[in-house]
């Protein structure tokens, strides 16, 4: 199958690329830095043998239609679209400068929305397809940290629910994963039992590709945290330093 991974140069996107390459899929890796993309592409091609293409785009400033054209010029068709790119800002806890707030919104919400939107008809027409989005535990409840990031991811989750509704009846599975802490640069040095390796998360996502549609939280501890956060009355939640 032809798989496109947006945000494939590092972290979860790169781990997903490796899992999919190991299964023999044809890949197109998309990210902002051509140097890392080229290195990941060469590595996967050499180690797994399959064809791996790369496409460098700036997710803050791109034309979704042109992007769609560039992808289809390289792959002919797309059977899987993984929208993984995302980033946080450690100052996202109050009045963030406009440019940085906009960057968070564009990369975490606008760009994946525009890409999914651009490929919607294409994926709906495929005999079998996958559309996968990555959300965050930061989007469970609004809080004074990761304010713009959390809002963007919540927006994306909402859009994926809409996509699922729109594509019900089509052969395209829509799946959305809320991930917690991962051992990536975004979570700068966090460690402990709640921190998952991106490789583990990628394995779970790939293993579930043919499973149920929906929005999922992968690990049991995060499921419990999510449940508690959802049930907590706001009068208590607002006192928490989370």
């Amino acid at each position: 199958m032809n798989m496109v991974i947006v945000g494939a140069s590092a972290g979860l996107g790169r781990a997903l690329a490796e899992e999919l390459a190991a299964l023999g899929h044809r890949l197109l890796l998309v990210a902002s830095d051509a140097r890392d993309l080229e290195a990941v592409g060469r590595d996967l091609t050499l180690r797994y043998g399959g064809p791996v293409g790369t496409l460098a785009i700036d997710l803050q400033n791109f034309d979704a239609d042109a992007f769609r054209g560039a992808v289809l010029a390289r792959l002919d068709s797309v059977d899987g679209l993984f929208l993984v790119a995302g980033f946080g800002d450690e100052d996202d806890c109050g009045a963030l400068p406009k440019g940085r707030a906009l960057a968070l919104t564009k990369i975490n919400f606008v760009a994946p929305l525009l890409i999914a939107n651009a490929f919607l008809d294409h994926l709906a027409a495929r005999p079998r397809a996958h559309l996968v989005g990555i959300g965050s535990m930061a989007a469970i409840r609004g809080r004074s940290r990761n304010m713009v990031y959390g809002a963007s991811k919540r927006g994306l989750e909402f859009y994926f629910e809409a996509l699922r509704h729109r594509l019900s009846g089509a052969a395209c599975k829509v799946q959305f994963y809320r991930v917690g802490f991962m051992a990536t640069t975004m979570f700068k040095g966090r460690h402990g039992p709640l921190v998952a390796k991106p490789e583990q998360v990628a394995k779970s996502i790939v293993r579930r590709l043919d499973g149920r549609e929906g929005a999922f939280t992968l690990s049991l501890p995060w499921k419990l945290i999510s449940l508690v956060l959802r049930l907590l009355p706001y009068s208590i939640f607002r006192r928490l330093d989370v």
């Binding site: 590092a10 890392d36 290195a39 640069t185 040095g189």
Partner: peptide, 10 residues
């Protein structure tokens, strides 16, 4: 000391 684990060439 401190540990940083970059994942991009930039």
């Amino acid at each position: 000391g401190s540990l940083e684990e970059p994942d991009r060439l930039r």
